[in-house]
């Protein structure tokens, strides 16, 4: 089972800790906190790649553009809003889940788990850690010390595609550096050490 990534947008330390405590009790949850408010929200979202965003409805009032930004990620990310008991949300605002601040633990659990189940069948397929044939080709060339441009020429693809492949490889393997990827390639016989000696 893969982890569901939650991004918490909440400035208050007390409330943030509260949300974290609740989420930590749910299985396979990865919590991302981002308190670096200097960055624009869309780049925070792109950097952290969450599947669910939990945020305080107060933020919508503080930042008029927030709703639009959040909604632009609608097809990829579920939105969960936390609101005060007597607070009404803006009638045009639509979210995947609205949690009342007074809800019981059981209620919150049930609703969040429903949301996670909605997402997971999809992300399970996407997040397989098996490398595709194309990715193995790219990895082999990375291990041989080739730069992106050279790999693009060898495989008849664009440099941009090479970069995308490399990002996916690193994500699947949990290895970012060329040195680390080379070790992986040697262990898994994607590249033979003799080939390496030839190059060096």
């Amino acid at each position: 089972m893969n982890n569901t990534r939650f991004l918490i947008l909440e400035k208050s330390y007390i409330i943030r800790q509260g949300i974290k405590t609740i989420l930590k009790d749910i299985a396979n949850v990865k919590i991302i906190e981002d308190t670096n408010y200097n960055l624009p929200l869309d780049s925070i979202i792109e950097n952290t790649n969450p599947s669910i965003i939990i945020f305080n409805c107060k933020l919508l009032k503080e930042q008029a553009s927030l709703y639009k930004t959040l909604k632009s990620f609608e097809d990829k990310i579920k939105l969960v809003v936390i609101k005060g008991t007597n607070k009404k949300l803006h009638k045009n605002h639509i979210f995947d889940l609205s949690i009342d601040i007074d809800s019981s633990k059981a209620e919150i659990f049930k609703n969040i788990n429903l949301l996670i189940n909605e997402i997971n069948p999809l992300s399970n397929e996407e997040q397989t850690s098996e490398l595709s044939d194309r990715e193995i080709e790219v990895l082999k060339n990375v291990a041989k010390g080739k730069i992106n441009k050279e790999i693009a020429d060898i495989l008849f693809i664009s440099t941009h595609t090479v970069i995308t492949h490399r990002k996916n490889i690193s994500k699947k393997l949990g290895i970012k550096s060329v040195a680390g990827l080379t070790i992986y390639a040697i262990i898994n016989k994607i590249i033979i050490e003799d080939e390496l000696d030839e190059i060096q």
């Binding site: 949990g174 290895i175 970012k176 550096s177 040195a179 680390g180 070790i183 992986y184 262990i187 898994n188």
Partner: peptide
């Protein structure tokens, strides 16, 4: 992190 993953997952 790379080194940890190599030791734990791959070697």
């Amino acid at each position: 992190l790379d080194l940890k993953n190599i030791l734990i997952k791959y070697l």
